[in-house]
Design a protein around this nucleic acid. Sequence first.
DNA 1: TCTCTATCTGATCATTGCTCAGATCAAAAT
DNA 2: ATTTTGATCTGAGCAATGATCAGATAGAGA
Lengths: 195, 195
Amino acid sequence: MQDPAPQRDSYHHGNLPQVLVREGAKLLAERGMGQFSMREVARRAGVAVAAPSHHFGNAKGLLTAIAADGFARLAQRQAKAAAANPDPRDQVIAMCRAYIDLCVEEPGPALVMFRLELVDGSDPQFQDRAVHSFEQFSRAVAHASPPSADRSQIDQIAKTLWSMMHGLQVLRMITDDEAEGLIRFAVGALLAGPS
Amino acid sequence: MQDPAPQRDSYHHGNLPQVLVREGAKLLAERGMGQFSMREVARRAGVAVAAPSHHFGNAKGLLTAIAADGFARLAQRQAKAAAANPDPRDQVIAMCRAYIDLCVEEPGPALVMFRLELVDGSDPQFQDRAVHSFEQFSRAVAHASPPSADRSQIDQIAKTLWSMMHGLQVLRMITDDEAEGLIRFAVGALLAGPS
DNA sequence: TCTCTATCTGATCATTGCTCAGATCAAAAT
DNA sequence: ATTTTGATCTGAGCAATGATCAGATAGAGA
């Protein structure tokens, strides 16, 4: 919540990596991936164009850090959504909504989190955080599933919902209002299983 | 199916636009969107770097044409899938598979078809073909839905499946083998609706 | 105080998208 | 048959980008 403050107090920046991640996310939110550039991020951070490369290696490195940060925020939102709902099924629905909310409120990270060509999937921190957020969701699905459901079926439901959430957002097939109804319908149907 | 043949017979190319779309799709398939470049497409077509701009305006124009072509091919595959299956539910399942098959067998167009930032969504041909392929799918869902299902529910099922298909593919959450089972499960559950 | 090392600068290089004047050619008009 | 017209393509040029590298700077430890 609190800003780390130091924007530039001396030759050394203080915490350039954090600032670059933040400015990068802001730039993504403002202009989208098409207009994203390392140089512009450096400019906004008030630093030489080559500085970011020192910390992140290349553009993919910075985007990976932004995406990893996004997954951490998603996990936070998911946890909060789960905590606010006692009923297991409501938890799943709320966690789906948490992802949509993330996309709306923090569009920067959301634009790169699931773009496997843009990020370095082998980065440990990225991997950890991505896996963690999905497993958190998967556990909620397991909780909400009927006792008759086995491991593979739970896995199918989680993957279907996870994919659906992403697809809905990227294809822009629904407005924010419709989202609630569609999520409730899909969660209900998938948890119930085929007739 | 048949190649239009003329690769270069004179100063005028013959059918540069078609060749550019084809070479562009091939380049996308080989190197992905990250390494895609207008200049490389021009090079492969054996033409000056400025030639593509004359036909497509800019990079987005060419990508839009590639995507539009992809939607036409998808519609073809969907129609064939439907024709091969008498049972309505099997038709829906086969049409879902048709999309996955497209992504595997023609990865070039698939990489841009659903990327709204990369293409010009207002292009009439692109719009027509995209809408047509979705409506074809939507009609199949309507056919397979129980009589009790109303228009809005059918719409929800179609959108959910359409989004899921895209999400599954882009997130690479399933192997080709798992796809069949997962699709059958999702289609069955969604058509049945919440318990 | 001196040394060491991470951090950051400034410049360079190859590549890209886009633009524009002009060359080339096919087809219509005369 | 000749001219004109207009679409197609060329070649050069411009601004911007990602990446790299030697070197400047300063904080941290000896």
